[in-house]
Design a protein around this nucleic acid. Structure first.
Lengths: 216, 216
DNA sequence: CGCCACTGACTGAATTGTCAATCAGCGAGT
DNA sequence: ACTCGCTGATTGACAATTCAGTCAGTGGCG
């Protein structure tokens, strides 16, 4: 589904031709959906608001996405794929050094491509609904599993090097929850902190968990 | 508001009298609201469904709570107050030993009174909406701040005893996010783990952060 | 000139909130 | 003890609104 959305140039604002190619329009609608979810939350997100932000009629949104349910599912799939590509790319450029991989993984999560206020807010909106809409768990399940597997592998490597016997799955979980949590804090706390503080928190978490094995 | 809900006997199932006292009915509706949020999520929670679960007409729900908006706000306030009382009570029974306090705090978060699947799912549902409905942040903001302050104070105490110079606020944040995160995992993961594993994860987090200062 | 993208009015369904009528419980008066 | 009448809980029909989804028709572009 999301694969159909080609990676054409971003920043295609104003002065759009009256009619757009299928893929360009779909991408534009997905971005409008993310904004809408961020501004109004899941429960008050409407097709009319998405259409207003994309400056098209709400009929056209349905023309391209068939139903609201499908639009929201495809938007989530888009973000999941984007997130997945982002961290995969970050560790692909690494040597086999687990500490360097972990460092790259953490930095990747705060890269501008995936870590914007709108996208973070949209993720939070989906999280609230995912528990009662299994379709969302299906969209993210596979990719989440892959991310967790990589984190656990890295944790295991680092623990082995230090000759420690903690459970790598537990440490990987603590790291993941700290990272996800800072993302949520940024959008939901009454006194939110900056992206920089969030990233530094996750890095400090890695240092405390892996000590000398994570010298960043 | 929530203070008006007296702590009358729980387990008042079946065989209710046709008419209920104001407080008993309000509490019953709040519990039905938590169940509804857990089962259907925020966006698909309806007054009719709440009424169905409470076995009353939907008109009566509005009679007691004036509006849906108010019902949801009061339900959140109820859970926030319950959570607050729970952890306050847990550390009240402690000596001044910070490690013991932290241990009690962590165990309290997994006590049956506050840590049920329904309530965890309801919390998750509210989190998704809180970012776009400031009223929810107001309801929780004060109490959250108090919880964070206590965690930071404990962190500082433990770090001082070890002569370490990490930032107590950062460690407190990692602990809080790990705890909140395990709560969310339980309701949203495709392969959720048990309450026991969740609690053990948070305890292990405390051990890793505070080392010898947290011998539990 | 044919094909899509596109529009906007319209429909049907779901849902919140209102309200007049009803009913249960309870205390006062007999 | 019995009834009357008051108070407040309760119901369900109804109004009003919002919103997803449909569709017939328009128009730009190759």
């Amino acid at each position: 589904m999301v694969g159909q959305v080609s990676d054409i140039a971003p920043h295609i604002e104003q002065r759009l031709p009256r009619t757009q190619s299928r893929d360009a329009r779909r991408l534009q609608v997905i971005e409008a959906t993310i904004e809408t979810l961020a501004e109004r939350g899941y429960s008050r997100a409407t097709l009319t608001e998405v259409a207003r932000r994309a400056k098209i009629s709400h009929g056209l949104v349905l023309f391209h996405f068939q139903s609201k349910e499908n639009l929201l599912a495809e938007t989530l799939a888009f973000m999941a794929e984007e997130y997945h590509q982002n961290w995969k790319g970050a560790i692909a450029g690494q040597t086999g050094d687990p500490a360097a991989e972990l460092h790259a993984l953490i930095l990747a999560d705060f890269a501008p491509a995936v870590c914007t206020r709108h996208k973070l807010a949209a993720w939070t909106a989906y999280w609230g609904e995912a528990q009662s809409l299994p379709v969302y768990q299906e969209i993210c399940g596979q990719k989440d599993g892959e991310y967790i597997a990589v984190l656990e592998r890295i944790s295991q490597d680092l623990l082995l090097r230090a000759g420690r016997h903690n459970d790598p799955a537990t440490l990987a979980r603590i790291l993941r929850l700290t990272q996800e949590g800072t993302w949520m804090d940024i959008t939901t706390m009454s006194e939110p902190y900056s992206f920089d503080v969030a990233r530094e928190t996750v890095l400090e978490c890695a240092r405390l968990l892996f000590r000398d094995q994570f010298p960043y």
